[in-house]
Design a protein around this nucleic acid. Sequence first.
DNA 1: TTGTGATGATTAAACGATTAATCAAGGATT
DNA 2: AATCCTTGATTAATCGTTTAATCATCACAA
Lengths: 327, 327
Amino acid sequence: MPSQKQIARELGVSVATVSNALTGKGRVSRDVVDLVTARAAQLGYTPSAAGRALKTGRSGILGLVMPDITHPVFPDFAQGLEIEADARGYGILIANGRGTEAGQDNAIKQLIKRGVDGIIMIPRRGTRPQVPPVPMATISIASDPRFAVAANHRQGGRLAAQAILQLGHRSVLLLGDDSQSPVQIDRIEGMAEALEGQAEFQVQWTGDCFPDLADLHATGVTAVLTVSDLLALRVVTEASQSGLRCPDDLSVIGFDNLPLSTAVRPTLSTIVPDTAELAKRAIAYLDAAIRDDQDPPAPSVVDMTLRLRDSTGPAPQTATQHRRTSP
Amino acid sequence: MPSQKQIARELGVSVATVSNALTGKGRVSRDVVDLVTARAAQLGYTPSAAGRALKTGRSGILGLVMPDITHPVFPDFAQGLEIEADARGYGILIANGRGTEAGQDNAIKQLIKRGVDGIIMIPRRGTRPQVPPVPMATISIASDPRFAVAANHRQGGRLAAQAILQLGHRSVLLLGDDSQSPVQIDRIEGMAEALEGQAEFQVQWTGDCFPDLADLHATGVTAVLTVSDLLALRVVTEASQSGLRCPDDLSVIGFDNLPLSTAVRPTLSTIVPDTAELAKRAIAYLDAAIRDDQDPPAPSVVDMTLRLRDSTGPAPQTATQHRRTSP
DNA sequence: TTGTGATGATTAAACGATTAATCAAGGATT
DNA sequence: AATCCTTGATTAATCGTTTAATCATCACAA
C-alpha cells in the first residue's frame, strides 16, 4: 500500500508537504501540489483510514442499530441512510438489536468499540436505549429527550381515512395486529380522528383472531384500513377466499409501500413514509452534532403521502343502502 | 476516552506492560495483570479501533456490496452475514451498488478507502466486479475464478418440481419474470430437468405479458412453479381474480420464503435458501483468507429446502382427466 | 564467587496522517 | 542597509496500540 511517506521519499520532499499538498492545508507551492497529486494518482494512493482516524479522532463511520433487519420496512430505511451518509462522506456499519433490549444495548457497545462517530437508532418498541458517548439520532414514534425524527403516523392514518371518506365509504374497519405497538396505535388513532363524525368505524386487533370479513361486509362494512401492507395483503386475500371482491365489495388500504404492494392483484393502495426525507434529517442532525455545529437541526416529524392503487374504489351502492336501512 | 497511556500513568507502569497485560501477550506478573484489568474495567477502557488498526493493519471490518438493498431477498442475507461476522469479531459496512456496474465498482472503491479487511459481494447479474486488493467472497450463481458460494438454484427447482409431481400434477407452467437472470434460468432449468418425461410443461416469462391463467387452466395446467414468491403472489391473486381457486384448481410454489408468503391466503409453498449457511461459508472463507490460512474453505454450493404450505394441493381429478382427453 | 537462566518489566520504534512550530530565503519597506 | 513580512518548505510531536529488543533482578548451579 502506498503511503504519504513513500510519495515523500520518491519526490524528495517531507511527509508534511505531501499531507499539506493533498489536503489543501498549510502552504505549498502550486508546482509541488501538482507534483504530489500526480504521483499520488499514479501510485493509486489512498489515505489510510486508520491513520487519519487516529490523528483526527474521527472514523467517518456511523452505526445503524435496527431491532430486526428482516422486517420489510427496514431495507428502505437502510437504503436512504446509506445514500445520505455517503453523500456526506460517512460509511454505515450495521448492527443487529436481535429483538431484545439487551441485544440493542450490546449493539451500541459494539459500535462504540469499532469507533463510530455517531449512531442511528431505530429502537425496539417500548425500550429506552442507553445513551452512547457519541451523538445518536433516533428514528421512532415518540418524541425523545435526545434527537429524534419520526414519520407522522397519525397524519398518515388521517390520509387513509380521508381517502376512504372521499370515495363515499361510511362504515369502516380499522385493523391492527399488535395493540402494543405505538406506531400502530398512532396510525389507528389518526384514522379514527378523521373518521369521527363522518363515518361508522370499529377497531380490531388480529393478535387474538382474524375478523370474519364476510360477516362484517354483511353488516355494511365497505372498507378496511390496515396498519401495514402485510396486513392489507392478508385482508385482500382473505376477502377473496370469502367470495368478496376487492375493491368492488371491499376497499383496502395498507401502510409502508412494501414491494409486495405492486405484486399482488389488485395492487395495494398504501400510505408511504418518506424514508428518504427521514434519512436525510437523521444524517443531517448527526453530521451537525459530530462537527459540533452551533445549531443542529431540531427534532421533527415527516408527513406521509397517499398512493392510491387498485385495492380502493368507490363505496358500493348496495352496501351503502344496506347500512342506511340496517339500524 | 481512557487510553492505555492513562492506565499506565495511574498505575505507574509502562504502556507496554498495560498492552501486554490486556492482550495476554509478553511477560507480565499475575499481580500486574489483575491490577491493570481491574483499572481498565473501572475506567471503562475500550481499545481504540483506530490505534489498533493502524498498528496491526487490520480493521476488523468487512464490506458488503449488494446491487439493491431494497430487494426483499437481501435482508435475510444481511442478517445472516451480520450474525456470522459478529461471531468472528468482524463488523459489517454496507455499500450500495445502486444497480449499475459502475456503482458496484465504486462501492468497492469506497469500502477499500474505509480500510475493510475483506469484501462480500452479491454481484449485479451479468457483471464481473473488479478485483479488490483484499479478499472477496462472492455470493452468486455462476462459479467464479475467485471464491464463491451459491445457493443450489437448480436443485431448488428440482425440489419444487418433484413436490408437484408427487401431488399428481401432470401439466405444469414454469414462470419467470426475467429471462436474462442466471438465477431464474437455473431455477427454471432445475424444474424442467425434474419434470422431463414425467409431466407436460411449458416455460413463460412475464417480461412481455402475464399469461392468461384461466386459458391455461382450461388446457389442463394444474400447477404453476414460479421463480420467486413475489411472482407466486401475483399468480395466486391473479388466479383468484379469474375465479380459479388455489390450491383446488391451481397449485403454486414460489422461491425465497419472503415474509409475505405467510401473510397471504393461501399461504405460499416456497423453496427456501439456507441463507444462514451461505453466510457462514462466505464469512468463514473471508476470515481464513484474511488470516492467511493455508487452506481456506473451497467454493461450494448450498442446497435449498422445500416448505409446503397452503398454496399446493393434490392435482384436481377433473383437470387431470381433461388433460388426458384433450390431445 | 562467578556465570547462567528465567522472570518481569521498560525502552523505543513503528504504523500513517495531521499540524503547530520553526526555519531559510527572498522581496519590500523604511 | 537594516528590518519586516511573506512564501514555501521542514521538523518534530502527536494520536493509541503493538512488539521486538533491552535491561535489571534474583535464584541457582558450578
